[in-house]
Design a protein around this nucleic acid. Sequence first.
DNA 1: TCAGAATATGTAAGCGCTTACATCTTGCCG
DNA 2: CGGCAAGATGTAAGCGCTTACATATTCTGA
Lengths: 350, 350
Amino acid sequence: MPPDRTDTAPGAPTLSDVAARAGVSTATVSRALNAPSQVTQATRDRVMQAVRDLGYAPNFGARALAARRTNTFGAVIPTMDNAIFARGLQAFQDTLREHGVTLLVASSSYKPEQEEDQIRTLITRGAEALLLIGHDRTAAAYALLDRQHIPYLVAWAWDEGAPRPCVGFDNRAAMQALTAEVIALGHRRLALITADRAGNDRARARFEGVCAAMTAAGLDARALLVEETPYSIANGAAAFARLMDAHPRPTAVLCGNDVLAAGAVTQARALGIDVPGDVSVTGFDDIELAAILTPALTTVHVPHCEMGRRAAQMLLDMRAGAAPPPGLRLDAGIAWRASLGPPPVAGGPG
Amino acid sequence: MPPDRTDTAPGAPTLSDVAARAGVSTATVSRALNAPSQVTQATRDRVMQAVRDLGYAPNFGARALAARRTNTFGAVIPTMDNAIFARGLQAFQDTLREHGVTLLVASSSYKPEQEEDQIRTLITRGAEALLLIGHDRTAAAYALLDRQHIPYLVAWAWDEGAPRPCVGFDNRAAMQALTAEVIALGHRRLALITADRAGNDRARARFEGVCAAMTAAGLDARALLVEETPYSIANGAAAFARLMDAHPRPTAVLCGNDVLAAGAVTQARALGIDVPGDVSVTGFDDIELAAILTPALTTVHVPHCEMGRRAAQMLLDMRAGAAPPPGLRLDAGIAWRASLGPPPVAGGPG
DNA sequence: TCAGAATATGTAAGCGCTTACATCTTGCCG
DNA sequence: CGGCAAGATGTAAGCGCTTACATATTCTGA
């Protein structure tokens, strides 16, 4: 006979409430829930009925504590404000779910200390593996990850000889390729609207890509006009406005991502500047927004979904004890749309 | 002297590892972490040093189990794919954080069974209160919430005499007001692109608002062309294309939200249809996208931030034992932009 | 019919933490 | 200088669950 606790439970129902109601032990309830095949059909039915009657929901903390596993992964992304990480993360999550793993997402607002905090929070909540964006973070954050023996993977960035497992594309090479196309169209006076480069290796790599392309084409990279501002449409618009005050004006404004580019394109309209007739604009990321802007944005296409899927697979393997895999490089191509064209003849009114 | 456990801990460091290293008991470590004022400065320093040395991160589950509180709230939103809920949720989260509460977010993909699942998951993970979107959900979901004694709040919807605490705006009235303006501009042939109305009381309310405005203006609501499709830009575009095949064509296409409207506007351009010259388009929600579309979208402005803040405050009060508050009605106005104008003269080419 | 295998269920020991309570210091006052 | 309040720290009992192990119970074949 199962133990018959006093049934004056005032709080939420627990396993033993269910056990009492079903007339079995807590062990049997636990098995009925987690390993149904080990329990008689009849018993199982009784247990399930009790679960339903009581509106029982297991206590995750207690379960994790006892079972010493959580089936939970974590991801810390810089921001949820825009859609940059949305699609990749969705694919990541979907793949994890197929393997019975829940994803917890936190955001760092591009602040290193906050990222460290969020990593700690996710560990605290039982994350068995973590997805992180880019390589830049505090030594303390890496130390914490090591001390806790948490497998982690850097995504949205692939670098030659990176010392950590990573999956992504070569930000530098992709931006260099796009810039080379811009230059090939005849543009000579270039500008870049970039996110803050401090603490953001992807932004730095993209900046370097622009410089490399200029140098390779025989242009002076020091002549690149640079506006640095946090990612947002409004900031992109403001930065674009500042660039249009330069003399001579740039004929092409490269943007560190599509959100900044959206601001640039919108601001161009407000200023009565034709894109791409007067000024060309390019983005980076190829989020949904890029295609519905007017004009539609020429941008670097990032393989969001594949990256998310691969990241999930790699982390699952690592949790299972696989050796840290080598970096996985994915291709980022160019999505050609309307916002990029040749410069105005005679270099424009600048 | 504190107990000196064997220090061959292979896994992540625990409280007693920290205690051993600092030369104190686990109770003292716990206090140093949670109630620093109860511990001598010297002891506290020693503990903190040990925490740092070991890379200790507390175990949330164990803590929740012992302390019987989690300081965690949950929210189940229909989707994270688009930005509809982003701003409100951000405000909700920010307000909670000010009060030391962490937010866990889950999404239901507009599926009732999945929502029930997610509610259960959040409860399982220790949510002490829940934010839900709209009133429509399974009886089982409500039963579960009651049985678990979880305070919850319905947001993004306010209804006359709703039987549950809610905070939001009157979807029906807002859509009716916008439709009345459309009609006042001279439009007579109206169409509506709406999300699936089954299981979505907001979508139904908005539909009813359109009908009510038509009836009030002496038009036959049965003449309203309705396209029902899940929220997405692509679906909005497809629905718009179908509507443009109607004879006679509608002169105004109302959309159940801004995402559908973005699809409609984009598709109009693709079809060579001028907005608002040939056809007017309106949205609902006033997300960031609305302002940067071409033409910018006339839409219903929703007080996202205030709603999020108020929701947080109400739920915090409820957790503290306050009686369920009466529904809180916020105002939703109209954001006038370029996509709405008078119908073409002579009713257009339809 | 019965031993022994296979299956179903119960018992009870923690998982890592918090906290009521007990114990030990310290400081202060008469 | 004793005694006691106040403060600092230690002890140990669980929180709700899983799971190794022990204990029925049923089934199988000779």
